[in-house]
Lab assay of single mutants.
Amino acid sequence: QTTIQVRVPYRVVGLVVGPKGATIKRIQQRTHTYIVTPGRDKEPVFAVTGMPENVDRAREEIEAHITL
């Protein structure tokens, strides 16, 4: 297991999390990772935990939302 920090712009935190957390839950299920969402007043950084290859996939999925 490994944990990485995925930093995103403030404006996309809501996009990545999705309505009621649906998007981030879907990313967690698809990539078999555990993702901690940043709090409102915190740095916009997601903490992604899982097997290294799964963590990389989750990071790619999160980063895909940044380019939307």
Score class of each variant (00 low, 15 high):
residue 1 Q to W: 01
residue 1 Q to R: 06
residue 1 Q to Y: 15
residue 1 Q to K: 13
residue 2 T to A: 07
residue 2 T to D: 08
residue 2 T to R: 08
residue 2 T to S: 06
residue 2 T to P: 04
residue 3 T to D: 06
residue 3 T to L: 07
residue 3 T to N: 13
residue 3 T to M: 01
residue 4 I to Y: 05
residue 4 I to P: 03
residue 4 I to C: 11
residue 4 I to T: 04
residue 4 I to G: 04
residue 4 I to Q: 12
residue 4 I to W: 03
residue 4 I to V: 11
residue 4 I to N: 05
residue 5 Q to E: 13
residue 5 Q to G: 06
residue 5 Q to C: 11
residue 5 Q to D: 07
residue 6 V to R: 06
residue 6 V to G: 15
residue 7 R to V: 05
residue 7 R to M: 01
residue 7 R to D: 08
residue 7 R to C: 03
residue 8 V to D: 10
residue 8 V to N: 08
residue 8 V to Y: 03
residue 8 V to F: 09
residue 8 V to Q: 03
residue 9 P to D: 02
residue 9 P to G: 02
residue 9 P to Q: 10
residue 9 P to H: 00
residue 9 P to N: 08
residue 10 Y to D: 14
residue 10 Y to G: 13
residue 10 Y to K: 15
residue 10 Y to M: 15
residue 10 Y to F: 11
residue 10 Y to P: 15
residue 11 R to P: 13
residue 11 R to L: 07
residue 11 R to A: 14
residue 12 V to Q: 13
residue 12 V to S: 14
residue 12 V to K: 10
residue 12 V to D: 12
residue 12 V to H: 14
residue 13 V to Y: 02
residue 13 V to A: 08
residue 13 V to P: 09
residue 13 V to H: 04
residue 13 V to F: 00
residue 13 V to L: 07
residue 14 G to C: 02
residue 14 G to D: 14
residue 14 G to Q: 10
residue 14 G to T: 02
residue 14 G to H: 07
residue 14 G to L: 05
residue 14 G to V: 02
residue 14 G to W: 03
residue 14 G to P: 13
residue 15 L to K: 13
residue 15 L to W: 14
residue 16 V to A: 05
residue 16 V to L: 10
residue 16 V to R: 06
residue 16 V to K: 04
residue 16 V to Y: 00
residue 17 V to L: 11
residue 17 V to H: 04
residue 18 G to Q: 11
residue 18 G to I: 03
residue 18 G to N: 08
residue 18 G to Y: 10
residue 19 P to V: 08
residue 19 P to I: 05
residue 19 P to Q: 11
residue 19 P to G: 02
residue 19 P to R: 15
residue 20 K to Y: 07
residue 20 K to C: 09
residue 20 K to V: 07
residue 20 K to I: 00
residue 21 G to C: 07
residue 21 G to V: 01
residue 21 G to L: 03
residue 21 G to S: 08
residue 22 A to P: 06
residue 22 A to R: 14
residue 22 A to F: 08
residue 22 A to H: 03
residue 23 T to F: 06
residue 23 T to E: 10
residue 23 T to V: 10
residue 23 T to H: 02
residue 23 T to R: 09
residue 23 T to Q: 03
residue 24 I to A: 05
residue 24 I to S: 06
residue 24 I to Q: 03
residue 24 I to V: 07
residue 24 I to T: 08
residue 24 I to N: 01
residue 25 K to V: 07
residue 25 K to M: 06
residue 25 K to Q: 12
residue 25 K to H: 05
residue 25 K to L: 08
residue 25 K to A: 08
residue 25 K to C: 06
residue 26 R to I: 00
residue 26 R to E: 12
residue 26 R to W: 13
residue 26 R to Y: 09
residue 27 I to W: 02
residue 27 I to T: 04
residue 27 I to A: 06
residue 28 Q to D: 07
residue 28 Q to R: 00
residue 28 Q to W: 01
residue 29 Q to M: 08
residue 29 Q to W: 00
residue 29 Q to K: 12
residue 29 Q to G: 08
residue 29 Q to H: 12
residue 30 R to S: 11
residue 30 R to F: 05
residue 31 T to K: 01
residue 31 T to P: 01
residue 31 T to Q: 01
residue 31 T to C: 06
residue 31 T to A: 04
residue 31 T to R: 05
residue 32 H to D: 13
residue 32 H to R: 12
residue 32 H to M: 09
residue 32 H to S: 13
residue 32 H to A: 13
residue 33 T to C: 03
residue 33 T to F: 03
residue 33 T to M: 08
residue 34 Y to K: 15
residue 34 Y to D: 11
residue 34 Y to W: 11
residue 34 Y to G: 03
residue 35 I to G: 00
residue 35 I to R: 08
residue 35 I to L: 05
residue 35 I to D: 07
residue 35 I to S: 03
residue 36 V to P: 03
residue 36 V to I: 10
residue 36 V to H: 09
residue 36 V to W: 05
residue 36 V to Q: 12
residue 37 T to K: 04
residue 37 T to G: 09
residue 37 T to C: 13
residue 37 T to H: 04
residue 37 T to F: 09
residue 37 T to I: 14
residue 38 P to V: 06
residue 38 P to I: 05
residue 38 P to L: 07
residue 38 P to A: 02
residue 38 P to C: 07
residue 38 P to G: 05
residue 39 G to C: 04
residue 39 G to R: 13
residue 39 G to A: 13
residue 39 G to D: 14
residue 39 G to M: 09
residue 39 G to P: 11
residue 39 G to H: 09
residue 40 R to P: 13
residue 40 R to Y: 11
residue 40 R to W: 06
residue 40 R to G: 07
residue 40 R to V: 11
residue 40 R to H: 13
residue 41 D to T: 10
residue 41 D to E: 09
residue 41 D to Q: 03
residue 41 D to F: 04
residue 41 D to S: 07
residue 42 K to N: 13
residue 42 K to P: 00
residue 42 K to F: 02
residue 42 K to L: 02
residue 42 K to V: 08
residue 42 K to T: 10
residue 42 K to M: 14
residue 42 K to W: 02
residue 43 E to Q: 08
residue 43 E to K: 06
residue 43 E to F: 01
residue 43 E to M: 04
residue 43 E to G: 07
residue 43 E to P: 12
residue 43 E to S: 04
residue 44 P to K: 07
residue 44 P to G: 00
residue 44 P to W: 00
residue 44 P to L: 05
residue 45 V to T: 08
residue 45 V to F: 05
residue 45 V to E: 08
residue 45 V to N: 08
residue 46 F to P: 04
residue 46 F to L: 08
residue 46 F to S: 12
residue 46 F to K: 02
residue 46 F to D: 00
residue 48 V to Q: 00
residue 48 V to N: 00
residue 48 V to H: 01
residue 48 V to G: 01
residue 48 V to W: 00
residue 48 V to E: 06
residue 48 V to K: 03
residue 49 T to N: 05
residue 49 T to Y: 09
residue 49 T to S: 12
residue 50 G to L: 04
residue 50 G to Q: 01
residue 51 M to G: 05
residue 51 M to F: 11
residue 51 M to I: 10
residue 51 M to P: 04
residue 51 M to E: 12
residue 52 P to V: 06
residue 52 P to C: 11
residue 52 P to L: 04
residue 52 P to I: 03
residue 53 E to Q: 11
residue 54 N to S: 10
residue 54 N to I: 12
residue 54 N to F: 10
residue 54 N to V: 04
residue 54 N to P: 02
residue 54 N to G: 07
residue 55 V to T: 09
residue 55 V to K: 10
residue 55 V to H: 09
residue 55 V to G: 02
residue 56 D to H: 08
residue 56 D to M: 15
residue 56 D to G: 09
residue 56 D to V: 14
residue 56 D to L: 14
residue 56 D to Y: 10
residue 56 D to Q: 15
residue 57 R to D: 07
residue 57 R to K: 13
residue 57 R to E: 02
residue 58 A to W: 02
residue 58 A to R: 03
residue 58 A to T: 09
residue 58 A to V: 06
residue 58 A to F: 09
residue 59 R to Q: 06
residue 59 R to Y: 06
residue 59 R to A: 04
residue 59 R to H: 00
residue 59 R to F: 05
residue 59 R to W: 00
residue 59 R to G: 02
residue 60 E to A: 14
residue 60 E to V: 11
residue 61 E to W: 06
residue 61 E to C: 12
residue 61 E to I: 07
residue 62 I to R: 05
residue 62 I to K: 07
residue 62 I to P: 02
residue 63 E to S: 02
residue 63 E to P: 02
residue 63 E to Y: 13
residue 63 E to A: 03
residue 64 A to F: 08
residue 64 A to L: 03
residue 64 A to G: 10
residue 64 A to C: 04
residue 64 A to P: 07
residue 65 H to Q: 13
residue 65 H to V: 15
residue 65 H to K: 11
residue 65 H to F: 15
residue 65 H to E: 15
residue 65 H to R: 09
residue 66 I to Q: 11
residue 66 I to H: 01
residue 67 T to Y: 10
residue 67 T to M: 11
residue 67 T to E: 15
residue 67 T to D: 13
residue 67 T to P: 14
residue 67 T to G: 15
residue 67 T to L: 11
residue 67 T to S: 13
residue 68 L to V: 12
residue 68 L to N: 14
residue 68 L to A: 14
residue 68 L to D: 15
residue 68 L to M: 15
